[in-house]
Computed example of a mutant assay.
Amino acid sequence: MTRYLPLIALFGALLGLTGCATPQPPVPLDQAFWTEKQDRIGVAYNDIPKPTVAMVGQQGLLDIAINQGLASGLRSKVETWDAQALERIPVEITGTLKEQGYQAVQLPKPLHLEALGEAKEKKLGYFAVDASPLKQRYQVDKLVLLSFSNAGTERSYYGMIPTSDPVSRIVVSTYVVDLDDNRLLYYKPIVVSRTAEGEWDESPEFPNLTNAFYQALDATHQELVAPFRNQQLSLSDQ
């Protein structure tokens, strides 16, 4: 059960974003993204999250206080991890699209969705945020958005009892939005997790868990760029 906790948390966050009774399911990349070569594509991302220690599971207030105290050494290390490499992903996506003959441009960073407001009509298959103002503002027809939610480690608990080892992870969703009508041309939420190879609890440096985090960063990079690397790869996923 604990291995599903990251996805449960992710879909819970998506439910809060969409405001729908049913969370938005993944949307395979629409062929229109590739065939409408006359359209300009804007590539953007939100704020890069600072790595942190996440504790999930059934915990009371006292449990949380004790668990946080016991994890203080790990937290001190995790907060030194550098997730800024995630900024290179939209740069690579923009370059990859240009190499294939598309008009792609990276939008000013970062893109704050809360400044755009909610979509007037919320329904499955459409972006929950009204992204249409970006069309006029940046002269783009489609938006590729990388929405990073969390980075760092996650560990599950039952009260004060850990029910898993800490796992390094990155949580991110990719959206492709048609700015004419806010329709989702692509949507994929992912949780990239890596476990420490060997003993994780080697304070104060936690080398194996730290290495797992940077492995997760690299895997995230590869997974996010892959759908845009070439048309054949993307269309085969449909």
Rank of each mutant, 00 (worst) to 15 (best):
S168W: 04
R88M: 12
G95N: 14
K109H: 03
E87G: 01
L74C: 08
A119Y: 08
I93R: 14
S168A: 15
P49Y: 05
A119N: 12
S132K: 09
R137I: 09
S164L: 00
V176P: 07
K37T: 14
S149A: 13
K98M: 15
L74Y: 06
D63T: 06
Q100D: 02
I64Y: 06
T96Q: 14
T94A: 00
L61Y: 13
S173Q: 07
R75C: 15
L145A: 02
D141F: 06
Y45G: 08
V176F: 04
D130Y: 00
Q103W: 02
R88G: 12
S76Q: 08
D141P: 07
Y126F: 15
G152W: 08
S149P: 04
V171W: 12
L124M: 07
F148V: 05
Q84G: 00
T174I: 00
R88E: 15
V144S: 10
D47L: 15
V140Q: 00
K122S: 01
P51L: 03
I161H: 07
Q38Y: 06
T153D: 10
I64H: 11
L70W: 07
F33I: 10
L116D: 02
G95D: 08
A131K: 00
L74P: 05
S76M: 05
V167L: 11
A71F: 10
P110L: 15
L86C: 09
Y45A: 10
T35M: 01
N46H: 08
G42C: 10
Y175W: 08
N67V: 13
Q84K: 02
S132T: 14
R137F: 03
Y138K: 09
D178M: 02
R169G: 11
T96E: 00
R155G: 05
Y102M: 11
S76G: 11
L107D: 05
I64V: 13
P133T: 12
N150L: 14
L116M: 08
L124K: 07
E121F: 04
L145G: 01
P110R: 15
P110W: 14
P90G: 06
L86A: 07
K123Y: 04
I170H: 13
P133A: 09
Q84T: 11
Q59L: 08
R155N: 11
D82Y: 02
S173A: 11
S156W: 04
S168M: 02
G152Y: 06
L70Q: 13
A71Q: 13
A104R: 04
T80S: 06
E114N: 12
K135L: 06
K50P: 01
T94M: 00
Q38D: 14
Y175E: 01
W81H: 03
V171S: 15
R137D: 05
L143N: 01
V171L: 12
E114V: 12
D39E: 14
D39H: 15
N67K: 14
K142H: 10
K109S: 10
E79D: 15
R88F: 09
T174N: 01
A151I: 05
G125N: 00
L97P: 03
L145K: 03
L179D: 00
